[in-house]
């Protein structure tokens, strides 16, 4: 857990949420630093959305404490400082897009101007004049984003923000989020797309079966979870080479795949040096680092198998 100077923007302290006898979130603790961009990752049903719902004050924790800006998320003063884009697309009938945005702006003490909101969300003036219920799925997403930023909040929640967006809309969305992050806003988002977490977040919280199973920078999670390996082609007797490699400190596994020998190790330098010392005719050496996708799969499947 990182050390913070000052009070965290959001904090969960040993939070558990029960649905019947099932623990959707199980003894989760973490704190979110001001100005950070955090991705909450995990397979369906891992507890991501439940955690977000509790942080937004939409669901009560069964045990433990959820704090935003050091207070209850239900506090109106807290709600003035946060914005959220929920999974469900929400619009009100009988109002135009512009009217809905202005209504929500009116709830906050220091809202953004309609012009800024339109610019950031990419809503055109034609879209602003449309009836909100008549908007397409993608347009409603933009509106949903516009409403999240309308109050110029310090803390932003995006629950699966890019589901249903095409590639260019998705790119535009993350560009805007980057802009908001550079203004010092604290951002928390859930996603299924690991690439988005890897690209955008400076911290990943990986949820699995209601618990945080990994917490760190994308780099740290990758290096912790993915196996680095040295692979090569050698014309010598594979069994002999395998035995040799097993004796190298740090090597945890040796296997053969597609005619190449793989030595799994955290310390690839030592393995390489040892390999050269043997004087074997080694060709086409490679160092492989697994992707975040692999790490994710490994983490979320290995535990299921263990059950």
């Amino acid at each position: 857990m990182p050390e913070f100077i000052g009070e965290p923007v959001a904090e969960l302290r040993k939070v558990t949420k029960m649905f019947g006898s099932k623990k959707a979130v199980n003894q989760v603790s973490f704190a979110i630093e001001k100005g950070s961009v955090t991705a909450i990752l995990g397979p369906n049903g891992a507890g991501k959305s439940t955690a977000i719902s509790m942080m937004l004050g939409l669901k009560d924790a069964s045990e433990g404490e959820v704090l935003l800006f050091g207070r209850s998320p239900k506090d109106l003063k807290v709600r003035e400082r946060l914005g959220a884009m929920l999974q469900e697309v929400s619009v009100m009938d009988g109002l135009r897009t512009r009217e809905i945005i202005n209504l929500i702006r009116g709830y906050y003490p220091n809202p953004l101007s309609l012009q800024d909101i339109a610019l950031l969300s990419g809503l055109t003036s034609e879209e602003l004049n449309k009836w909100a219920v008549k908007m397409s799925g993608g347009q409603k997403r933009k509106l949903s984003f516009a409403l999240a930023i309308a109050g110029n909040p310090e803390l932003l929640f995006f629950d699966e923000p890019t589901v249903g967006l095409d590639t260019s809309a998705r790119r535009l969305f993350w560009q805007t989020v980057r802009k908001l992050a550079s203004q010092g806003k604290t951002i928390l988002f859930t996603t299924h797309y690991l690439q988005e977490a890897d690209d955008m977040a400076d911290r990943i919280l990986l949820f699995h079966q209601g618990q945080v199973v990994a917490d760190g920078t994308p780099e740290a999670i990758k290096s912790k979870l993915t196996r680095r390996s040295v692979s090569f082609i050698v014309d010598a007797d594979h069994r002999q080479v395998k035995e040799l490699l097993h004796e190298v400190p740090g090597v945890t596994d040796v296997y053969e795949q597609d005619g190449r020998l793989h030595a799994v190790t955290d310390d690839t330098d030592t393995a390489l040096a040892a390999l050269f010392r043997t004087g074997l005719a080694v060709r086409d050496m490679r160092i492989d680092q697994g992707s975040l996708d692999e790490a994710f799969d490994q983490l979320t499947t290995s535990q299921e198998e263990a059950v």
């Binding site: 937004l56 004050g57 939409l58 109106l76 003063k77 709600r79 003035e80 946060l82 959220a84 929920l86 469900e88 697309v89 929400s90 619009v91 009100m92 009938d93 929500i104 709830y107 906050y108 409403l147 109050g151």
Partner: peptide
């Protein structure tokens, strides 16, 4: 019911509107 099903009523609870 409509406003809740559409998700609007839930969204309202995230805003500072009492």
């Amino acid at each position: 019911v409509q406003e809740r099903v559409q998700g609007w009523a839930i969204y309202m609870r995230v805003t500072p509107l009492p």
